[in-house]
């Protein structure tokens, strides 16, 4: 509250009598509570800072500690190595437990990528088309049913989806496509996609709804059909939002742990065959942190993976949030 500027007072007027003791006490309380509330916002900032700090702190030895460097360095993590034999060379191996620990991160990155790609390829068309149907073609009643139902998907804990993929989906897929491995990137990817559909759907639906009525009316008045209107007028307008939804879905999929932990087979294989098991960044951390010796190089590498994961998801979320913000500004600003 800014205090208003005061004029020069004439000598005759004096200030209002102030402050009975109870008012003083109330003011003191008010001040204390205000400070307390400000403190809570500092706590929120502190929390995220602490997360950066402590995860980073345990990851730092990977970059700085000579003992850790005896076992693993940045270059051994990211660059091709000479594992395997000359006849069957293996440039990238993730095998941190064993006589000669190997810490190639590439199989893990590739694993995350494969699972996420499948998830997005699976989820995006479904979510987008469903959103288009909900906003452009569905009668009012249906709309009020479809939205909550799809949002129910969002309420399913990821461990349940992982369970379903592990027990049911894997068998179905294996029978359907005659796959060699039961647990693989496709299996995990589809389950991941299920988890991601609600996010993409909700954002796309928002983006489509935000397109002004007038665009649709103009198109229909020119003789275009509802579908042509949706495809050629509404969707292009909503593209930034759709893009944002995809990016945010990507971010969510990369960071997801339980589904891939249970459904992907957890084998660090470096190949582009999607029907093979994969091991993602997130699953590696989850699978190995329980066994690791506190303070060992492996321990620090796992935290380093966490930082990596954090940075990747953060990047995706950041791009996505900016896109959403820009979209909102564009559509609430001018009716272009």
């Amino acid at each position: 509250m800014g205090a208003p500027l005061l004029s020069a007072m004439s000598a005759n007027t004096t200030a209002l009598p102030t402050v009975e003791t109870s008012v003083a006490r109330r003011r003191a309380w008010d001040w204390a509570i205000e400070k307390f509330i400000y403190l809570s916002s500092l706590v929120a900032i502190a929390i995220i800072v602490l997360i950066f700090l402590f995860v980073g702190r345990e990851a730092l030895p990977v970059l700085t500690s000579p003992q850790v460097h005896e076992e693993v360095t940045l270059s051994t993590m990211f660059l091709p190595q000479n594992y395997g034999t000359p006849e069957a060379p293996l440039p990238y191996v993730w095998q941190p437990v064993g006589l000669h620990p190997k810490y190639s991160v590439m199989p893990l990155l590739l694993g995350s990528l494969k699972a996420t790609l499948i998830a997005m390829l699976f989820a995006t068309p479904l979510a987008l088309l469903a959103a288009i149907y909900t906003t452009e073609f569905a009668p009012r009643r249906m709309r009020e049913v479809i939205k909550p139902v799809i949002e129910m998907l969002a309420g399913i804990p990821s461990v349940v989806l992982g369970f379903f993929a592990l027990i049911v989906l894997a068998t179905v897929l294996q029978d359907l496509f005659d796959l060699e491995y039961r647990l693989n990137a496709i299996n995990a990817g589809i389950a991941l996609g299920l988890a991601v559909i609600p996010i993409v759907y909700t954002i796309c639906e928002d983006a489509l709804t935000a397109v002004p009525r007038s665009y649709r009316n103009a198109s229909l008045a020119l003789g275009a059909s509802p579908w042509q209107t949706a495809w050629k007028v509404v969707l292009p307008s909503a593209l930034p939002g759709v893009f944002a939804g995809i990016v945010l879905g990507f971010g969510r999929a990369v960071g997801e742990t339980m589904i891939v932990l249970m459904a992907s087979g957890n084998a660090a294989i470096t190949s582009w065959n999607f029907a093979e098991p994969v091991r993602t960044l997130s699953a590696s951390i989850a699978a190995e942190l329980g066994e690791v010796v506190f303070g060992s190089p492996h321990y620090h590498v796992l935290f380093f993976l966490g930082v990596l994961l954090f940075v990747i998801t953060f990047a995706f979320n950041w791009v996505g949030t900016i896109a959403v913000a820009r979209l909102r500004k564009r559509l609430t600003g001018a009716d272009r």
Partner: peptide, 24 residues
Amino acid sequence: YRIEGQVLLDGQEIHTPGTDVITL
């Protein structure tokens, strides 16, 4: 918001720093 001049309650200015807004 900025105010100049005087607003008096029973002859006393209500905008002085010492005025208690709550009592006012």
